[in-house]
Computed example of a mutant assay.
Amino acid sequence: MGFWKRVLVNALIFLALAGFFPHLIYVSSIWMALGASLVLGVLNALIKPVLLILSLPITILTLGLFSVVINAIMLQLTAWFVGSGFAFSGFGASILTAVIISLVNAIVSDRFARD
Score class of each variant (00 low, 15 high):
Phe112Gly: 05
Gln76Val: 09
Leu40Cys: 07
Leu96Phe: 15
Ile101Met: 13
Val27Gly: 04
Phe112Tyr: 13
Leu63Val: 07
Ile100Trp: 03
Leu77Met: 12
Gly19Ile: 11
Phe66Asp: 05
Ile100Lys: 00
Val82Ser: 02
Pro22Thr: 06
Leu51Asp: 08
Phe88Asn: 01
Leu24Phe: 12
Ile101Arg: 00
Gly35Ile: 14
Phe3Glu: 08
Ala113Leu: 06
Trp80Arg: 04
Ile30Thr: 12
Ser28Ala: 14
Phe20Val: 13
Phe20Trp: 14
Met1His: 06
Leu56Pro: 08
Pro22Phe: 09
Gly90Met: 02
Leu51His: 04
Phe112Val: 14
Leu54Arg: 01
Ala11Met: 03
Ile60Thr: 10
Ser84Tyr: 13
Ile101Gly: 03
Ala33Asp: 07
Ala106Gln: 10
Val50Pro: 03
Ala93Thr: 06
Val27Arg: 01
Arg111Asn: 12
Gly92Arg: 01
Leu103Ser: 09
Asp115Lys: 08
Ile101Gln: 05
Ala87Glu: 13
Val99Gln: 05
Leu43Gln: 03
Phe91Ser: 05
Leu54Thr: 06
Val82His: 05
Ile73Trp: 08
Asp110Gly: 15
Met1Trp: 10
Gln76Tyr: 12
Thr59Asp: 09
Ser37Phe: 11
Val108Ile: 15
Phe66Gly: 00
Phe3Ser: 05
Ala45Asn: 09
Tyr26Pro: 01
Lys48Tyr: 09
Gly90Lys: 00
Leu15Pro: 03
Ile25Arg: 02
Ile95Pro: 01
Leu52Ala: 11
Phe91Val: 03
Ser37Gln: 04
Leu61Arg: 00
Phe86Thr: 06
Leu96Gln: 04
Thr97Trp: 03
Leu46Pro: 05
Ala18Gly: 08
Gly19Trp: 14
Ala18Asp: 09
Thr97Gly: 02
Arg111Pro: 05
Leu54Asp: 11
Thr62Trp: 01
Phe112Thr: 11
Asn10Pro: 04
Leu46Asp: 11
Leu51Pro: 02
Ile70Leu: 08
Phe112Asn: 05
Leu40Gln: 11
Val68Phe: 15
Leu75Arg: 04
Leu63Pro: 05
Ala98Trp: 07
Arg114Lys: 14
Ala36Asn: 04
Ser29Gly: 07
Val68Met: 12
Arg6His: 04
Asn71Ile: 03
Arg6Ser: 11
Gly35Thr: 13
Met32Asn: 13
Val69Gly: 00
Pro49Leu: 01
Leu56Ser: 12
Ser28His: 10
Phe20Ile: 15
Val39Leu: 02
Ala93Leu: 07
Leu96Pro: 09
Met1Lys: 02
Gly41Phe: 08
Ser67Val: 15
Val68Ala: 14
Thr78Phe: 03
Val7Lys: 00
Ser37Asn: 03
Phe66Cys: 01
Ile58His: 00
Leu75Glu: 08
Leu56Met: 14
Ile47Ala: 10
Thr97Asn: 01
Leu51Val: 12
Leu65Phe: 13
Gly64Asp: 07
Leu96Val: 15
Pro57Cys: 06
Val42Asp: 11
Arg111Asp: 13
Arg114Trp: 09
Met32Cys: 14
Ala106Asp: 13
Phe20Leu: 15
Leu77Trp: 04
Ile25Tyr: 04
Ile107Tyr: 10
Phe91Asn: 06
Leu96Ile: 14
Leu56Tyr: 13
Ile107Asn: 02
Ser29Gln: 03
Gly85Asn: 02
Leu17Ile: 12
